[in-house]
Computed example of a mutant assay.
Amino acid sequence: MKYILDFEKLVPGDIILESGNSKFSPVIKTITDSIYSHAMIYVGHSIIHALTDGVYSTNPQRVLTDDPKGLKVLRLKSPLTEQARNTVVNYARNLSGSIYSVPEASLSAVLGKTRKSSASRQQFCSRLVAHSYRQIGVSIANNPDYCTPEDINRSAKLNEITGVLKPADEQEVAFAESDNPIRENQRRMFLWLNQTREVFAKRKIEIQTESDVASFLMKNNDLDGLVCEFIKDSEYLEHYDYDKDVNPHRYEIKALLEKCSSAEHALEVFFGEINKEPSEIARHSNSYFLSGLNFIHLGLEYHKLHKQLYRNLLLMSHDRLVVLCQLAEIFRQPKLAEYCNYQTNYIQRII
């Protein structure tokens, strides 16, 4: 029996501890006297975490465990305001692309009991989670710079949330173990980011995230063309097409109907898909607006490329919603069809 997170019971900002099965997991668990070796943060239909190849996102539906005790969800005892939750979530999201530091992580079991701070901007799993909460003035560990998953597990600021695991059915296991298009997107991002890091390092500038690139290009605009070549060569800007190849049912009504075994299953698929779209549209429309504004203000090709990227991502949401609208109409759900049309009309207005 395998178990999976019931992500409908999660709220953005929830912390997920995992027993883990990486090559470092047994060592971490032994040193920290814990059953957990990994910490992640749920940001809404996605999880942000740091592994040895860097910081990136993953789908919570891809997190499986053989042991129901192998996953644990923690939530802040004091309810978060919407503003505070957004601060935590956005900070974690913006760390995507950061470099993982094995040496820094290795010091946590010892330095976690001290107040020693770190000058490093590199990440590891529990630091990422603790730093995200530090942005709102909440310390979930004695030392947010050096902490372990077990330090977070024992935090007096957090409560365990029960009932968030469920047995995974065959379809859920198959999906969790299938090829992950997000990993391909991360591979492309790290490809151009690593090349950009090397160029900026020659000017003694440290690049960790995409936000760093945008910030430092303002004073190093002579590198704009070179960085944009890195981005285009990595095919990062074309990743939106990759999802169409991996998940054709999201873009073709015939493929979606073939995926549905019954009317009940069709509605289940519908709600699984439709619930993702509002937050995606909100994030991408905001990024589309800011990229356009930055391009007008700074004239950098970097922002022009990103404006086009977010436009394409919004168009993908539009295409997915059109298919969902067709599904709702086939199963005579006019309110659901209207809900889809409202969002497609919004996208059309802003782009």
Rank of each mutant, 00 (worst) to 15 (best):
E8Y: 12
H249E: 07
V164F: 12
V43F: 14
D233F: 14
N143D: 11
A50C: 12
K276D: 00
V199C: 02
K69H: 12
D319S: 00
D151M: 15
V323C: 03
S19K: 12
V129Q: 03
K244P: 05
L158V: 15
A141T: 09
I253T: 06
L298M: 11
L17V: 07
T114W: 07
D169T: 09
R127P: 02
T196L: 10
Y342P: 01
Q348C: 01
V213C: 12
L309T: 07
F24I: 11
Y242K: 03
S101G: 09
I41W: 15
L290K: 15
R332D: 06
Y342V: 13
L17F: 06
T344L: 05
D212A: 06
I4D: 10
L237A: 13
Q348W: 09
S262D: 02
R187M: 13
M40I: 10
A39W: 09
I4G: 09
E280Q: 12
I281L: 11
F295P: 03
K77Y: 07
E238Y: 11
L324Q: 04
P334H: 01
P278N: 03
L193N: 07
D241S: 14
T87W: 10
V55C: 06
P248R: 13
N143G: 12
M1Q: 02
P149A: 09
R320P: 01
T209N: 01
E252F: 11
K335I: 02
S78H: 15
L74D: 02
Q122I: 13
V43Y: 10
A84Q: 02
C260S: 08
G137R: 06
Y36A: 00
D212Q: 00
L223H: 08
D222P: 04
A141C: 13
C147M: 12
V110P: 09
E104P: 07
N159G: 05
P278T: 09
E329R: 08
T344E: 03
D245V: 07
E277Y: 14
R183D: 01
E177I: 14
H303D: 06
F7Y: 07
K72I: 07
Y3E: 01
N194L: 11
N294C: 15
I152H: 05
